[in-house]
Design a protein around this nucleic acid. Structure first.
Lengths: 193, 193
DNA sequence: ACCTTTTTTGAATGATCGTTCAAGTGCTTT
DNA sequence: AAAGCACTTGAACGATCATTCAAAAAAGGT
């Protein structure tokens, strides 16, 4: 046996960035070779094909961003404050206008979900996981009385996911800090009441 | 002089559909030839190149959907009722899961805005127009007392645009009528209060 | 130290891409 | 009716695409 030389996480993060910059179809194997440092043969050996690399990159994206997600709720203070910080962070990403700060799941969804059922299935699974993470936070906030119980947590989590999608898309055309922060603030308010 | 044989609107609507099905990059000139019935030479003669056809299709999309938009507010009854019907219509589109019912502006934005400034500029312009249309409706609703004046119309229009983006994206992963209708209902409520 | 096994390498492949162009076709004007 | 011009046609172009493969390199097991 001989173990692979390349660092899998490094390669997947590089591929992630490449896909976020140009989208799936516009990113060529040459681009991926340049970004990852892997020759075509190695990519095909490790990930089957270009789509396999995308699927692996999406999984890595989910690992990374769920780790990031958790940092907002690790500390001991209120879940609602965590949500507020989380939305602030997303607004920061929108303002930065860097393709690397966009959401790979959303990009893949818009470009490929209607065409490729593998991508559709994987992205849907990952997004459901994220939504249920949000649902738990909301539930905790409701138990603390920070968020009203007039609507159940699942419904509120759905609204939050929808709003974050919307915020990111809106940011593409209108990346102005003040307005995006006001939108985020209203989302937090509408979630709480 | 000799006038063009093809029906420009028909061609642009056909191209629209093709782009909505596969996205810009994945739609080949062969696809466009099949969809529009135009040979490559005619397309290049009339629209310069593939991107030119996309830009023209986006403009046609805007004409069509702003005409459609107006039908929801032509009648004499309340602007708020119009907004409700409009959101219902968008939810219907989400539920149908037909690529032709998606939003070309949103697709183009996600796939190309970060890469191509012509597309970015055109889409941003069109979206601003749509937003200001919504703003006028909201203003009218506020004058009638249907929507509270605690927040200004521009801010509410922004929130509505954001929510509709979000709704459409959310629909890709979760096209279930009941849940989407509940989300739309909450959006209308949050807009009004 | 040698042999097996696996990865890496990078050139080559056939397919398909967007685009061009010269010949053909048919209005429109004179 | 004839001539001119603009549009249509569809084959051909070079470029680039995702993918393959055989040779070279390197690690592990004995």
């Amino acid at each position: 046996m001989r173990s692979a030389e390349f660092d899998r996480e490094f390669v997947l993060r590089a591929a992630m960035k490449a896909f976020m910059h140009k989208g799936f179809n516009k990113t060529s194997m040459q681009d991926l070779k340049a970004a990852t440092g892997l020759h075509p043969g190695s990519i095909y050996c490790a990930f089957d094909n270009k789509k396999g690399l995308l699927l692996a990159a999406i999984e890595q994206y989910n690992l990374d961003s769920s780790a990031c997600f958790n940092t907002f709720f690790d500390s001991v203070d209120s879940p609602l404050a965590g949500l507020t910080r989380y939305l602030d962070y997303i607004v920061d990403q929108c303002i930065s206008c860097e393709p690397e700060s966009s959401c790979l799941l959303q990009k893949a969804l818009n470009e490929l979900a209607e065409q490729d059922s593998d991508v559709q299935t994987l992205v849907t699974t990952q997004l459901r996981r994220w939504q249920s993470g949000l649902e738990n936070i909301i539930k905790a906030a409701q138990e603390r009385g920070e968020i009203s119980g007039t609507r159940d947590a699942k419904c509120r989590a759905r609204f939050l996911v929808m709003s974050i999608y919307g915020l990111r898309t809106y940011g593409y055309t209108h990346p102005e800090a003040e307005d995006l922060r006001a939108l985020a603030k209203q989302v937090i308010h509408d979630i709480s009441v």
